[in-house]
Amino acid sequence: MRRATTMPVFAPGWRPRWGSECLILAAGGVYFLAAAPFIPGLASWENLGNLLSNLLPLLVIAVGQTLVLIAGGIDLSATAIMAVTSVAGAMVMRGVPGHGPVAALAGVGVMLGMGTAVGWGNGFAITRLRLPAFMVTLTSMMFFSGLALWLTQSQKINGLPAAFNALGGNLAVELILTTAVVGLTAWGLGRLLAGRWLYAVGHNPRAALISGVPVGPVVMAAYAFSGGAAALGAVLLTGRGETGDPVLGRYLMLDVIGAAVLGGASFFGGRGGVGGTAAGVLFIKLVDNSLSLQGCSHFTIMMVKGGLILAAALADGGRRRLAGEDQGGRA
């Protein structure tokens, strides 16, 4: 493992500064303080625990997406990976005699391995076959969504081992897993040479290549990580629901990309970080949670969430202009 000898030239993985993550965190804080007196239960410890539990799976998946966005790509297959790994893991666990911890371990291993492999396949098709990321991951999404439904004939799979269900149904376990993955990712992005390579590839892949950065392997690693992160998200959500679900995460993609972009990631690459994405996830889930507590309909929540994300994005654009920052991206 090679470590960077200097601070990254581009945006670091986690460094407190007046950036997108600060703005979104501030917006979330103001929103929370303004809403708390009017929404019963919003500031209760119990609800804060709920909020934390709700945001952890999304955080894991969004961090994976962030790495792909930093590399200048996009992974539309993340939710399909969640669905197919959910049912594949459940089938494996149901097939292992005893339904004990060994079955749970086998299921988790299959899920993480499969997710990473699918992500690596996406990266391979993009870098080696030179296909557009949008097309590759869209096709991948369609294929693996269909595969999940075909494998189960649209049926849910339950009766999973208790040891596996505890991974998603126990907040402390969820928190430890998520903190470990997210913390290590932030450290790697900010401190390792591979993290600098990722930003360099996303900022200008041609220049990165000329500078000796192994562009292909870096992009493939980013997609593999995204696939693995989606699979870990599937582990948490499948355990929580105690069911292998062939449509798991079907409605999650907008939240995943929305959180990453809110946190400062750019569709044009070279920008973003784990801290920003965490702030974006917190903001999205806070809005969702507060409106739901208020008894707003799902449709209202969608509209308000969309409006707030747009407002936050506009505010962030204004902040960058005032700060004289690059508006992001390459042509």
Binding site: N50, N54, L237, G241, V247, S292, L293, S297
Partner: peptide, 20 residues
Amino acid sequence: AIADGDANRQYEQVRNFITR
């Protein structure tokens, strides 16, 4: 609350009911 076909969202809604 309407879950719009999302079981995970419905789980969160039920927990919100419990919080309330």
